[in-house]
Amino acid sequence: MAQQLKLPMWTVACNEDTSASDLVGRFILKGNETPWIDGPLTQAVRQGGICYLDEVIEARQEALVVLNALADHRRQLFIDKTNEVLHAPAHFMLVVSYNPGYQSVMRDLKESIKQRFVAVRFDYPAIELEQNIISSESGCTSALARALANFGASSRKMAGSGLFEGVSTRMLIHAAKLMSQQTGQQNLLEAALIDPVTDEPTIRASLLALLPLVMAAVHM
């Protein structure tokens, strides 16, 4: 998006320690002075561009509060420590991302924050599209890519009954790369597709039972 719009982008990987100061900025010690350093959000507002807060749900609640005035019609960033009010230019954009679903059972964005954004929903790709992605990213045969895409879809259907989340497209690409290098090794598939997602014996056995479908494609 930044590339297409030719805008600078500030990316913040949020975590549970991410505070408002990490976004807005803070005074630092420098020699005998305590200059103010803009945080990535402030820089984006001052200069115009895209500020992308990845996994925003992980950030502290107080960090999210600073977004309120910025993300609604006011488009203002209040910096209380410097007593400044910044008005975001027209080409300033705020983008946040997080994983809804089971992860939000424990933590979720406040409705008031969610409603300040336009939402784009990303889900797993359809089988045909995922097959193309796996095939083009890994260079594997289309039969193996298809079988892996089917395996991914099957694992996702199992999610919720002991399996937290199904196999991701990223994992399927890794598996395809491994299988392309070491054809016929089932233990590679186990290592790439099953062990990373579960160590629960019953679910593991369930996923193992589906692997022959992939192995059959390998030997085609």
Binding site: S161, I203, A209, L210
Partner: peptide, 8 residues
């Protein structure tokens, strides 16, 4: 186990 496989 069977339920999971069927679900898959």
């Amino acid at each position: 186990w069977l339920e999971s496989v069927l679900r898959g």
